[in-house]
Design a protein around this nucleic acid. Sequence first.
DNA 1: CGATAACCGAGACGGTACGTCAAGTCTTGCA
DNA 2: TGCAAGACTTGACGTACCGTCTCGGTTATCG
Lengths: 213, 213, 213, 213
Amino acid sequence: MTPRQQNRPNPARRSEASRQAILTAAFDLVGEVGYARLSIEGIAARAGVGKQTIYRWWPSKGAVLFDALLALAAQGSDDAAGAAGAADAALPDTGDLEQDLKTVLRATVEELTDPRLDGMMRALSVEIITDPALAALYAERLDGPMRELKLARLRSAQQAGQLPQDADLDLAVDMLWGVLRTTWLERSRPLTAEYADLLVRTALNGLRGPAHP
Amino acid sequence: MTPRQQNRPNPARRSEASRQAILTAAFDLVGEVGYARLSIEGIAARAGVGKQTIYRWWPSKGAVLFDALLALAAQGSDDAAGAAGAADAALPDTGDLEQDLKTVLRATVEELTDPRLDGMMRALSVEIITDPALAALYAERLDGPMRELKLARLRSAQQAGQLPQDADLDLAVDMLWGVLRTTWLERSRPLTAEYADLLVRTALNGLRGPAHP
Amino acid sequence: MTPRQQNRPNPARRSEASRQAILTAAFDLVGEVGYARLSIEGIAARAGVGKQTIYRWWPSKGAVLFDALLALAAQGSDDAAGAAGAADAALPDTGDLEQDLKTVLRATVEELTDPRLDGMMRALSVEIITDPALAALYAERLDGPMRELKLARLRSAQQAGQLPQDADLDLAVDMLWGVLRTTWLERSRPLTAEYADLLVRTALNGLRGPAHP
Amino acid sequence: MTPRQQNRPNPARRSEASRQAILTAAFDLVGEVGYARLSIEGIAARAGVGKQTIYRWWPSKGAVLFDALLALAAQGSDDAAGAAGAADAALPDTGDLEQDLKTVLRATVEELTDPRLDGMMRALSVEIITDPALAALYAERLDGPMRELKLARLRSAQQAGQLPQDADLDLAVDMLWGVLRTTWLERSRPLTAEYADLLVRTALNGLRGPAHP
DNA sequence: CGATAACCGAGACGGTACGTCAAGTCTTGCA
DNA sequence: TGCAAGACTTGACGTACCGTCTCGGTTATCG
């Protein structure tokens, strides 16, 4: 028997309408007022919901944001390359690794430039930085699946001989998307398609192995 | 004539003791209770200072944290490699770029593992993500000088023929320290000396190799 | 035709077990946590009953308390002199009015000193003060019958020539029990048998007519 | 040295305007919406004051009501016979005890008939019934002084030979005003001037007559 | 005698108010 | 005037209950 958590509300009786309203309100509000002025009371009011309905189902503001993003991902599962792409999606694989990566990173740049997604992602980032539990959840549910897609594309390239057999693919992912993420978070330089291209070129060089051993 | 700010208190009459007490209290508290529970009132109380004394000299909690880190950097200016190293410091230059970078990144890993610095840096990161003005200040006063040191070391290697003339050194810095930063912020994997080494090796490959093969 | 209330539950199908459990829980809880912390949710939980079962049969918290006291009275109908004595009981009538009244008021003092009854009566008093409808119900169902018993005893004394024919017996009841009640409610002095005795002596004097016309 | 309470706010810096606004708002609101719907938030909002300002200076809603009534008493100190009469006031003393008492009790009836004072007094009564600490405060600060005035008048009558030397004057006060209070609280009969007169006549009989015949 | 309507337990829901914490502003009195 | 102290308004926190409203699951008549 699967162990049951006790004292928890019964998910079977959960109001789907309220859940949707809350996630939508959270997403809308974070885009309108930003993270600093985002409040649970505000979300509840906007969603036309009692505060307790939020506290009943989510442990923290961050968890709500997280679910809002998850819902967004599930909804927009057609956009294979989307940062919030669904689990069954796949990165493009035309055989040309560099070109494919550029396509994907340009799309990511596009997303992070959209003010609503920018606000949402920043808010979630703050929560993740602050709350290790949420960070773990994020790693498992959002970052994990996404990373798997990326790794799959790189493995495909590896099998095609475009990357060395001993390349650290995990690190490759960090280099490509991690750098992009830091640059965006710290606003250290404008995010452009050119920047994405440069990133891909340089990182791939590093992975292809020593040019001058 | 330098443009004058009006309605501002007179810095000449500022109490240095209070300033020091506030910065110390901020640093201590962020290490003890974390960012989420850090409050201006708490800092003022710990510093034995009126709240107004904080509001008089700093525009936001983030600005206090920022100054606290600046003070820390100034104080520990002997540690050339420290993330908080002073402006006149320099990165080690033994002629062996890879080894030097490993040394520096290992030191950075060390710092980010220290709970007090970890707390402080996370707190500041949150503020920077949220507040573009603070991000700009950070870029100018802390990240900028540090980046200059890093660029200097890379330029030195470039002149020594260890890096191509057309290598994008700014991007190199992003790849090395930016990846480290993301990994730390998201706790996506444990920060170790080995990870630092791997990072250096791979990134240098990317820079050394032909960008346009 | 007797007009029927519509939309009301069918009393025939009412669960007696639940009714008893609710009244018992209400009585126990008011004794344990006091009026201020008494809640319908608490009563329902303690009684192992759904909230709706309370709302279905009682219009307010006060009404529950009222019924709880009524049930108590019906249950303890042997104690003729009890404040919660049953309808068919009678006050003692030995022929000695003063002595009989002292007996009854001492018993009342005894009851109001019992912590559980004290809590219950205070709670009910609060509801009565606040809610005129409940006050009317109380007057009709609890205070009324009790008052009738008291009046009966006084009338008996009147017929025995122990009280003037024109004495206002209603006022006499107020003077005896009303004063006791106020003293108890306001805790303005300790409730003792001696106090009861003094009360009886003095009030009877007032009723026996002018000593110095 | 008088012992000082610690951790308490400094009364010297208290805002008199806020204090007045709160007491006025409490009095007005209790008259408008009644005790059941009276809330601290409501009082704060009506007074244009932060909730914390109420919690800073009063321990409970009852304490606010108490002070509101005290303020009312101090303000209306001219009305010597008022239930809220000031400490230096005195009951009328024309030499005719019965007439004087009728005058005073009629005035009390008048007050308790005023909807605003009725609401206020009911609210305070509920709090007093519930909270022994407030009951003690009430006894000391409001009921005590008032009772002293009443006792003074009765003592004067005693010296004039209108009451026996061994009459229990405290009980006399209970009989006169206590009965009135219970009748009012329980709404057991309409409060009229006639009722007040009857009460005075009967109670005085009890006191004048021989306690031990 | 099986359907079908009701009560019942449980508890999710939109709300109101609670009492607390902290934000940022303002005032007072000391140095 | 800078400062410590702290009272002020504001607003959000997370909790407790309110009274209403489903949900399945027993009963317990009635067709």
